[in-house]
Structures are given as C-alpha cells and as structure tokens.
Simulated scan of single mutants.
Amino acid sequence: MLLGLALSSAVLLYVILNVQEKPWQDILTALSTFTAAVVALWLGVRQQVRDRRQDMLRATLVAAFLLPRIDTANSRVRRLHNLLNRYDDLEADRSAEIAWFEDVKGTTLAIGLNVTLDQLQALTPLPDNCAFRLARATALIDEIARTLGDGRGEYWTDELTADNRSTFQSFWSKCALEAQQLLFHINLNCKAVAGERSALAPGDTWGT
C-alpha cells in the first residue's frame, strides 16, 4: 500500500509539473489513482489497528481468566522448590526420604497449571514474551511430573542409588527454580494487564 501511494504521488507530481503538455483527463486520472491509494492505505491501517485492539482485548480476558490458576501455581512451585532444597537435610534417613518423595510428588501433581494451546496463543500480544514464558513454565512442571512417574517412596529409597537420587533431586530443583522465576514474571504481567482493563471499554466488541 505504501508503494502504491508513493507511485501515485510521483505520477500526480509529474502530471502537475507538466500540466501544459498534458490534457486535464490525465490530471483527473492521476488524482483518482492517488485518492484510491490513500483510501486503500487508510482502510488497511484502520483494519490493522482494529485487529490489534481485538487481539489485546482477548489476551486481557484470557489473562484475567488464568490469573487465579497462575497465582496458585506460582505459590505451589515456590513451595516445591523449597521442599526440594531440603533434601540434603534428610541425611539418608529412609523413612524421611520416603515421606519427602511422596510430598514432592503430591506437591507437583497439585500445581495444576493446565494451560491450553489456544490460551497460550491468545496471550501472545502481552509484553515480555508472557506466552512463551508460560509455555516454558508449563513444560518444566510437566517434565518434573514425568520423571517422578508412578514410583512410590519405597522405589526411591530401595531401587535407586544415592547418586541417582541426588541427580534427580538436582534436576527437579533446577526445573522448579526456573519455573518459579518464570511464573513470578507471568503473574506480574497478568495482574498488570487485568488491572488496566478490569472492564470492557466503550466500543470493545468481538465483531469486526
């Protein structure tokens, strides 16, 4: 559209500068072309602004919908990370390790972030890569749950060596720390957006 506007402007300028040699029909044609290009440009920009506004409205509504879930997940991941860091205090006590493992597993399963792909896509207009941060945090939590598997505390203490247990604990702790940091920023972004748009502004619709 910008290229068409520039070409039309050049044609119009050329015709005006050579008005003595050109019939008025050429001038009118150039004016019509220029006007059509301006109108097309205006309509395109107007549609883009409208689309961005609709995308941001949808992102705001989804952020407000997910905010309680993200807030809960944030606190539970923080608890999980603190729990994982207490592993070294168990001092290889079998019963304490069994209880610790069951607590880790229960806390992980209770996080319950459960964000759909459509919801992630809706959040893409939000600042600071909020959607990508949320996708990464969800993947980290899922990875902890996957590696925990269906094992019970007895398997943790009786089937795995001390080195294996230490490796798993270190991996889970790193995942939980990164997820905690991501969810902290996501929570702030969603709260900021939901606070700015607590209600629909006049003219906000889902129509085009």
Rank of each mutant, 00 (worst) to 15 (best):
E178L: 02
E196Y: 11
R152A: 09
Q54P: 03
A59D: 11
L3P: 01
P68F: 05
L17D: 08
L109F: 12
Q20C: 06
F101D: 02
D103Y: 13
L2W: 09
D142V: 12
S75Y: 13
E154F: 07
E159P: 10
S170W: 02
Q54T: 02
I111R: 05
L3E: 14
A131W: 05
D88W: 10
T35I: 15
N189V: 15
E21K: 04
L126M: 09
V38I: 12
D103E: 15
D26R: 03
L41N: 07
S32M: 04
D118F: 05
L2C: 12
F34E: 09
L182K: 03
Q48M: 03
G149M: 15
G44S: 11
F34R: 07
P23Y: 00
L3V: 05
L41I: 04
N129F: 14
A37G: 05
C190G: 04
I27F: 14
N187T: 07
P127R: 09
A122R: 01
D93G: 08
N129A: 12
F171M: 11
I144T: 11
N85F: 09
T108P: 06
T138Y: 08
Q48P: 00
A192C: 04
A99Y: 10
D93C: 01
L17V: 00
L13Q: 12
L134P: 07
E143I: 08
S166A: 14
L61P: 04
L2I: 08
G195N: 06
D103P: 07
L200H: 08
S173D: 01
T33H: 08
V15H: 00
L5I: 12
F171E: 10
A122W: 01
L2D: 14
I186T: 08
N187A: 12
A131E: 13
R46W: 09
A131F: 01
T147E: 06
G149F: 14
S32R: 04
L109D: 10
V45P: 02
N74T: 15
S198L: 13
L134V: 00
C190H: 04
S9N: 02
N189Q: 14
V49N: 14
E196A: 15
A199I: 06
L61K: 11
H81R: 15
T147Y: 03
N85W: 06
P125D: 01
N18S: 12
L183Y: 10
L188V: 08
L113F: 13
L57G: 04
V15L: 00
H185D: 11
V193I: 15
T205C: 09
Y87C: 06
V15P: 00
G106W: 02
D142F: 11
T29L: 13
D26H: 02
T35E: 11
Q25L: 06
G106I: 04
F132P: 01
G207E: 13
T208N: 06
A92D: 15
A194G: 05
A73V: 07
W24Q: 13
A176T: 11
L80F: 07
T116C: 03
L67M: 14
A176K: 09
